[in-house]
């Protein structure tokens, strides 16, 4: 497995370098500080949401409501900060993340305990959470002047501690936060029994149950984690964009998150993949995103391109899984 992961990560690195190379060759402006900044601000949102989705997909599940979770949690955080600035940015962030956890728990409860198929349960909540986003906001957006400066600063300033280090000092808080989330995810998936149970469940659900792994709890928690990631990403969204619009926030985001996870080497057939690959694939998508806009390829193409890359990754995985099973002499 180590070798396989290394191969996936290596090819992601190569892909990133290639795309950057082509983009710079065609449009030297690509390497501008402005663009690097916009990659650095876009990727953390995706990465934080993708970490939770990673656990879900390893268990052979899927959470398509993650964009709506981001939306509802981000909207709620923005409204709270507008109406009750005394909460402070930290307090509102905790509420946003907590709300994400609750929304994830609703998904997880339906899937783990009521045995609703993941795609059905989360497609339902995709609609419900989006609807609630309109209800809590009354359909009105929160504008950047209504939000405390502190929140914006997450996306503008880095830690004071590093303010004298050249280059590093221009890396904003959101990037450090995302890095921390990725490291914690990786450690959690590798060094806790919960993380290993997630892999076992995805690898062989029947065996996991017979080996006494608390299958329902493990499944439930994966969706809670996904909700936490979505909620946290919602808070980061408010910081990044300042303007929070109920129909814009997180709309269609699930496609990018799921694409990032699958391209990062997490098989939709369960049991394989992990945080490092997903982190790299978030960076890849970030580079692609900026490259497309710098090369003046219309925004409207972006969704189609994510969809295409996602399908290619799944087909490649499926073929790979088949040949692995064949080599192992298992039924194909």
């Amino acid at each position: 497995m180590k070798k396989l992961l290394a191969r996936r990560e290596l090819s992601l690195v190569v892909a990133i370098i290639l795309i950057v190379g082509v983009a710079v060759a065609l449009q030297p402006r690509f390497a501008s500080e402005q663009n690097i900044r916009s990659i650095l601000l876009w990727v953390p949102l995706l990465a934080v949401a993708a970490m939770g989705q990673t656990a879900v997909i390893i268990t052979r599940g899927i959470d398509v409501s993650v964009g709506s979770i981001l939306g509802l949690a981000g909207m709620t955080t923005a409204i709270l900060l507008r109406d009750y600035p005394q909460l402070g940015v930290g307090g509102a962030a905790v509420i946003g993340i907590g709300l994400g956890a609750i929304l994830g728990a609703i998904n997880g409860g339906m899937i783990a305990f009521a045995k609703v198929p993941p795609i059905v349960a989360t497609l339902g909540t995709l609609g419900i959470y989006r609807g609630l986003t309109f209800i809590v906001s009354g359909g009105r957006q929160v504008d950047d002047y209504q939000l405390p400066k502190d929140l914006m600063n997450w996306s503008l300033e880095g830690p004071a501690l590093l303010s004298n280090v050249p280059f590093i000092n221009s890396i904003p808080w959101v990037v450090w936060i995302a890095l921390l989330v990725m490291i914690l995810s990786h450690l959690g998936m590798t060094y806790t029994s919960y993380g290993r149970d997630v892999y076992a469940l995805g690898g062989n659900p029947d065996a996991a149950a017979l080996r006494g792994i608390p299958v329902n709890f493990v499944t439930f928690m994966a969706y809670v984690l996904c909700g936490i990631g979505g909620g946290f990403a919602g808070v980061l969204y408010a910081s990044r964009y300042g303007t929070v619009n109920p129909s814009g926030i997180g709309n269609g985001f699930e496609l990018q998150v799921i694409a990032a996870v699958v391209i990062g080497g997490v098989s939709v057939f369960g049991g394989t993949g992990g945080a490092p690959g997903v982190a790299l694939s978030c960076l890849l998508l970030g580079v692609v995103n900026v490259a497309l806009s710098v090369l003046a390829i219309a925004d409207t193409w972006q969704m189609a391109i994510y969809g295409l890359v996602l399908l290619v990754a799944i087909i490649a995985d499926e073929r790979f899984a088949r040949s692995a099973r064949k080599r192992a002499g298992e039924a194909v």
């Binding site: 497995m1 450690l187 590798t190 060094y191 806790t192 029994s193 290993r196 149970d197 892999y199 076992a200 690898g203 062989n204 029947d206 065996a207 996991a208 017979l210 080996r211 006494g212 792994i213 049991g271 394989t272 192992a328």
Partner: peptide
């Protein structure tokens, strides 16, 4: 009842891996 993508060692100890300072 084995887990194809996990290592041999993990297959033996799944669900009760030895820990040190709270980590596997």
């Amino acid at each position: 009842l084995t887990f194809p993508d996990l290592s041999v060692a993990e297959n033996i100890f799944i669900g009760r891996q030895p820990t040190k300072a709270g980590r596997i």
